[in-house]
Design a protein around this nucleic acid. Structure first.
Length: 128
DNA sequence: CTTCTAACA
DNA sequence: TGTTAGAA
């Protein structure tokens, strides 16, 4: 499920393709970039290159606009979404007590070269 | 031929 | 947002 995300993030679509896929004008697409929504990569020739995720976001923006939401509103929506994703990332990266114990054990093992005795290592593993 | 930036009879 | 000019 990680490989798929990588491919969806690959910027391989030029403006013309994005216009056809989203039915938006180049003017609009560039304007949304100015508003810091959907920032595309640039190729060697300074051409904007979009990813499939960018396409999804542009379509989402088009929907929001169609529902009568303005730029400020859309920006607010993504700001909130970014905050929640950050919180989740923080929690996901929090070490559990089990993680700390495992890391501590590995540190001691590599530092002292203990655990040569099988009985000792088995007893030690059982306690972890 | 396509896309980019900058600007507005 | 549309459109256009001139460059890349």
């Amino acid at each position: 499920m990680r490989e798929k995300e990588l491919r969806r993030s690959l910027a391989v679509l030029p403006m013309g393709t994005v216009m056809k896929l989203t039915n938006l004008t180049a003017r609009q697409i560039r304007y949304y970039e100015e508003q810091e929504l959907v920032i595309p990569e640039r190729n060697a020739g300074n051409r904007r290159m979009y990813s499939l995720n960018d396409i999804d976001k542009l379509l989402e923006i088009k929907d929001f606009l169609g529902e009568g939401i303005n730029m400020a509103g859309i920006k607010h929506i993504y700001e909130e979404k970014a905050k929640k994703e950050q919180e989740k990332a923080d929690k996901h990266n929090t070490l559990t007590d089990a993680d700390v114990r495992r890391i501590l054990r590995d540190e001691f093992v590599s530092a002292g070269g203990f655990m040569k005795d099988n009985d000792f290592s088995l007893r030690n593993n059982r306690s972890l």
